[in-house]
Amino acid sequence: MLQLFLKNGLVAKTTMTKEKREIIIFLIFTLAVLITPFFLRGSYFLNVLVFIGINTMLAVALNLLLGYAGQISLGHAAFFGLGAYVSGVLTTRFGLDPWLALVIAAAVSGVLAFIIGFPILKLKGHYLAMATLGFGIIMFIIFNETVAVTGGPSGLSGIPNIQISSLIFDNDWSNYYLIWTITLLVMLLSINLSQSRIGRALRAIADSEVAARVMGVNARLLKVQIFTVSAVISAMAGSLYAHTMTFISPASFGFNFSIELVTMVIIGGLGSIYGSFLGAAILTILPEFLRILQDFDIIVYGLMLIIMTMYLPGGLISGLEQIAGFIGSKIKSRGGSHA
C-alpha cells in the first residue's frame, strides 16, 4: 500500500514538473522572440523572421490536423489564400478596416472548412489526400479566374497595412512584433489544446479511430472541428500576410505551397508545436541560402520528405529531444555516481 502511494506520488510529481517545464520552455521561447531583432542588422533578416512567423502559424495549424488528429490535408494553402483574398478584397474594394477584414476572413474560412469538412473527413488516407488536393486546386483556379474580384494572375495590390489607432504596421520592426505576438498566441493556444482532453482525443483518433469512438469520442465531429480551427488559423495567417505584404497573387497559394506546408510539419515533427516552428524556420531560410542555385529548393524538399519519413518519422524535433535526453542522462548518471 505504501509502495503504491509512493509510486502515485512519483507519477504526480514527474507530470507536474513536466507541466512546469512546458511553461518555462514557452517563456524562454517568447523571450528569445522578443529580443532577437535587437541582435540583427538590416531589414533583410527581420523580413525573413516575419515570414518565419507567418509560416509557423500555418505549420502549427496544419500540425493540429496532421500531427495530432492524423488527418492529411494537401490543400491547406487554399485556406491561407482564402484568408489573404477575403481580407485583401474587403479592404481594397470595400474600404473595411483590416482588423475587421481579418475577423471576417477567418470566419469565412472557418465556415467553409466546417461545411466541406463533413464529407471530406469521412474519407481516409489516400482518398483524403486526393480530395484535399482537389479542393486546393479548385480554390487556386478560383483565385486565378475570378479576375474581376481577385485581379487574377496579376494579383491584388494596394492592400492597406494594419493599424492600431495611430500606430501603422508598415515597417519591419512593427510587423515583426505584430506577427510574432499573434504567432506566439497561436502556439500557446495550440500547446494548451494539445495537452487537454481534446488533444488526447485527437491523438486517440489518429492511433485507433474505432477504439476512440468506443470510448465515446465523436471522431467525425472532432475531426471537422479541428479542421475548422486549422482553417481559421490559416486564414488569419493569410490575412496578416496580405496586410504586411500589401500585395498578393495566386502563385503564393498553389499546390506547391500546400506541399511545402506538409514538408514543414513533417521535417519539424508531427505532433510538436515547436517542431512546426523549426520546420517553418528551415523551409523559410533554406530558399534564401539556395537562391544562388535557383529552384534547387524543390529537389531538397523532395529528398527531405523521403529521408525524414524513412529514417526520422518523429521529425527533427524528436532527433533533438533524443540528443538532449542522451546528454541529460549522461549528466544524471555522472551526478548519480558521485552521490
Binding site: R197, I198, A206
Partner: peptide, 29 residues
Amino acid sequence: ELFGQMTVLENVMVGLHTKSRSGVISCAF
C-alpha cells in the same frame, strides 16, 4: 486496440472522455 503512441496514463485519460465536457475553446484558453 490501444492508443499506441500515447502514454499508459493518457490512454486511461481518454477513457474519461465522456466524464468531462470542456470543448475546443475552453481547452485552448
